[in-house]
Lab assay of single mutants.
Amino acid sequence: LTVQLGNLEWHFDNPEQALKMAEELAKRYQLKVEIDNGTLKFK
Score class of each variant (00 low, 15 high):
L1F: 13
L1V: 09
L1R: 04
T2L: 08
T2E: 03
V3D: 02
V3F: 06
Q4M: 12
Q4C: 11
L5C: 12
L5F: 14
L5P: 01
G6H: 07
G6I: 04
G6N: 06
G6A: 06
G6W: 11
N7W: 12
N7G: 12
N7V: 10
L8D: 05
E9Q: 14
W10G: 00
W10Y: 06
H11P: 03
F12H: 02
F12S: 01
D13W: 09
N14Q: 07
N14G: 04
N14L: 08
P15Q: 09
E16Y: 13
E16K: 12
E16C: 14
Q17K: 11
Q17I: 11
Q17T: 11
A18W: 06
A18M: 05
A18T: 03
L19Y: 14
L19D: 01
L19N: 03
L19G: 02
L19Q: 06
K20M: 09
K20W: 08
M21P: 00
M21A: 06
A22F: 06
E23F: 14
E24G: 11
E24Y: 15
E24A: 15
E24R: 15
E24D: 11
E24P: 02
L25T: 01
L25Y: 09
A26Q: 04
A26H: 03
A26E: 04
K27I: 09
K27M: 10
K27T: 09
R28S: 03
R28D: 02
R28M: 09
Y29F: 13
Y29N: 02
Y29L: 09
Y29K: 01
Q30D: 10
L31H: 03
L31D: 00
K32M: 11
K32S: 12
K32L: 13
K32I: 15
K32C: 12
K32G: 05
K32Y: 10
V33A: 05
V33C: 08
E34A: 06
E34C: 15
E34R: 06
E34L: 13
E34D: 07
E34N: 06
E34T: 12
I35D: 04
I35M: 12
D36I: 14
D36F: 12
D36R: 10
N37F: 04
N37Q: 09
N37P: 02
N37G: 14
G38L: 06
T39L: 10
T39R: 11
T39K: 11
L40F: 07
L40P: 02
L40V: 14
K41D: 01
K41A: 04
K41H: 07
F42A: 02
F42W: 04
K43T: 13
K43L: 12
